[in-house]
Structure formats: structure tokens, C-alpha cells
Amino acid sequence: ILQTYRAIANYEKTSGSEMALSTGDVVEVVEKSESGWWFCQMKAKRGWIPASFLEPLDSPDETEDP
């Protein structure tokens, strides 16, 4: 089962193997590399994304803190 994550910042791809993101995009993580790059898919797009640009979809938003 794939894990679902949300983009927390815009990411512009710098090579053909990467995938561009916009803040709020929801992606499915296909593979996690120890290098800190994750292979993700979103609709018909697939590519590598730095893991630091993603957060788990089920994590609470910062605005929901008590």
C-alpha cells in the first residue's frame, strides 16, 4: 500500500527524473531512498522529490494546535 503525503512547499524539478510540486499537492510515495529522495506519483506524473518537501497527509495542520 502506498503512503500518501502532502507537499509543504513548491518544488521546481531540475532534471527529467524529478517531479515538480506545488504547495498542497497530494502525492503517493512509491519508493523511499536513503539519500532523502522519494519516488512519488501524482495522477499521470511520476518522479523523484526531496522528502523534506513532504509531510504525511494524516498529520495535523499547524493551525490546529491548541
Rank of each mutant, 00 (worst) to 15 (best):
I1K: 13
I1R: 08
I1W: 07
I1V: 10
I1C: 10
I1N: 13
I1M: 15
L2M: 15
L2Q: 15
L2T: 15
L2Y: 15
L2V: 13
L2W: 11
L2I: 15
Q3D: 13
Q3R: 13
Q3W: 08
Q3L: 08
Q3S: 15
Q3M: 15
T4F: 14
T4W: 06
T4E: 10
T4N: 13
T4K: 15
T4M: 15
Y5D: 02
Y5C: 11
Y5L: 02
Y5A: 11
Y5K: 00
R6G: 01
R6F: 03
R6H: 03
R6P: 00
R6T: 05
R6Y: 04
A7H: 00
A7I: 06
A7S: 05
A7G: 04
A7C: 09
I8H: 05
I8W: 04
I8K: 12
I8N: 07
I8Y: 02
I8R: 13
I8M: 08
I8D: 01
I8L: 08
A9H: 09
A9C: 12
A9G: 13
A9F: 07
A9M: 11
N10W: 01
N10K: 08
N10E: 09
N10S: 11
N10L: 03
N10I: 04
Y11G: 02
Y11Q: 05
Y11H: 07
E12M: 07
E12C: 11
E12H: 11
E12A: 06
E12V: 05
K13T: 14
K13P: 12
K13I: 12
K13Y: 05
K13D: 11
T14R: 10
T14Q: 13
T14E: 07
T14L: 09
T14V: 10
T14N: 11
T14K: 12
S15Y: 08
S15E: 11
S15I: 08
S15P: 08
S15L: 08
S15Q: 12
G16T: 15
G16P: 15
G16Y: 10
G16S: 15
G16W: 08
G16A: 15
G16L: 13
S17W: 09
S17F: 09
S17Y: 10
E18V: 05
E18G: 12
E18K: 05
E18Y: 04
E18S: 07
E18I: 04
M19K: 00
M19V: 04
M19W: 04
M19L: 10
M19T: 03
M19E: 01
A20M: 07
A20N: 13
A20H: 06
A20E: 10
A20S: 09
L21D: 00
L21W: 02
L21Y: 01
L21R: 00
L21E: 00
L21P: 01
L21G: 00
L21Q: 01
L21S: 01
S22Y: 05
S22T: 06
T23C: 11
T23K: 15
G24S: 02
G24D: 05
G24P: 01
G24C: 00
G24Y: 02
G24H: 03
G24I: 02
G24T: 02
G24M: 02
D25Y: 01
D25K: 02
D25F: 00
D25V: 01
D25R: 00
D25T: 02
D25I: 00
V26S: 04
V26C: 07
V26L: 13
V26Q: 08
V26D: 02
V27S: 01
V27I: 06
V27C: 04
V27M: 02
V27K: 01
V27F: 01
E28Q: 09
E28A: 05
E28H: 09
E28L: 05
E28K: 08
E28N: 08
E28W: 04
E28R: 06
V29P: 01
V29G: 01
V29S: 02
V29N: 01
V29Q: 00
V29H: 01
V29C: 06
V30G: 02
V30N: 03
V30S: 05
V30E: 04
V30A: 04
V30H: 08
V30W: 04
V30M: 11
E31Q: 12
E31I: 08
E31F: 06
E31N: 08
E31D: 09
K32L: 02
K32Q: 07
K32M: 06
S33W: 05
S33K: 15
S33H: 13
S33R: 15
S33A: 10
S33P: 04
S33F: 07
S33L: 12
S33V: 05
E34H: 09
E34V: 09
E34C: 09
E34T: 10
E34L: 06
E34F: 05
E34A: 12
E34W: 04
E34G: 11
S35T: 15
S35G: 10
S35E: 04
S35N: 14
S35M: 07
S35P: 03
S35W: 04
S35L: 05
G36W: 03
G36H: 04
G36R: 03
G36L: 02
G36V: 02
G36T: 03
G36P: 03
W37Q: 06
W37L: 13
W37V: 07
W37R: 09
W37E: 05
W37C: 03
W37N: 06
W38T: 00
W38L: 05
W38H: 03
W38P: 00
W38C: 06
W38V: 04
W38A: 04
W38Q: 02
W38R: 02
F39S: 03
F39Q: 04
F39V: 03
F39E: 03
F39H: 08
F39C: 06
F39P: 01
C40Y: 01
C40V: 12
C40F: 00
C40E: 00
Q41I: 07
Q41K: 11
M42D: 10
M42A: 14
M42W: 09
M42V: 09
M42I: 08
M42Q: 13
K43M: 10
K43Y: 08
K43W: 04
K43C: 07
K43P: 08
K43F: 06
K43R: 10
K43A: 13
K43G: 15
A44E: 15
A44Q: 15
A44R: 11
A44K: 13
A44C: 11
A44H: 14
K45I: 10
K45V: 10
K45W: 04
R46P: 02
R46N: 10
R46Q: 15
R46F: 08
R46K: 15
G47P: 01
G47D: 03
G47K: 00
G47A: 04
G47E: 02
G47Q: 03
G47M: 04
W48H: 02
W48Y: 07
W48P: 00
W48D: 01
W48L: 05
I49V: 15
I49E: 00
I49H: 02
I49K: 00
P50R: 05
P50A: 02
P50W: 03
P50S: 01
P50N: 04
P50T: 01
P50F: 01
P50K: 05
A51G: 10
A51S: 14
A51R: 08
A51H: 09
A51Y: 07
A51T: 04
A51Q: 08
A51D: 05
A51N: 09
S52T: 12
S52R: 14
S52I: 09
S52H: 13
S52G: 09
S52N: 12
F53V: 15
F53Y: 15
F53A: 11
F53W: 07
F53Q: 08
F53D: 01
L54A: 02
L54H: 00
L54F: 03
L54Y: 00
L54C: 01
L54W: 02
E55S: 07
E55L: 06
E55W: 04
E55C: 08
E55G: 07
E55H: 05
E55P: 00
E55N: 04
E55A: 11
P56I: 07
P56H: 06
P56Y: 05
P56L: 07
P56A: 06
P56S: 07
P56D: 04
P56Q: 07
P56W: 03
L57R: 06
L57W: 13
L57Q: 08
L57T: 15
L57N: 11
L57E: 09
L57M: 14
D58Q: 08
D58R: 10
D58W: 11
D58E: 15
D58N: 14
S59E: 14
S59C: 13
S59W: 08
S59L: 11
S59P: 13
S59M: 14
P60G: 14
P60E: 10
P60S: 13
P60C: 12
P60Y: 12
P60D: 13
P60R: 13
D61C: 13
D61Q: 10
D61I: 13
D61W: 09
D61A: 13
D61S: 14
E62V: 12
E62C: 12
E62R: 11
E62K: 14
E62G: 13
E62M: 12
E62A: 13
E62P: 12
E62T: 13
E62W: 10
T63W: 09
T63C: 13
T63H: 13
T63M: 12
T63I: 14
T63N: 13
T63A: 11
E64C: 13
E64F: 12
E64A: 14
E64G: 11
E64Q: 14
E64S: 13
E64R: 11
D65V: 13
D65P: 15
D65F: 10
D65K: 14
D65N: 14
D65H: 12
P66S: 10
P66F: 08
P66N: 07
P66I: 06
P66C: 08
P66Y: 07
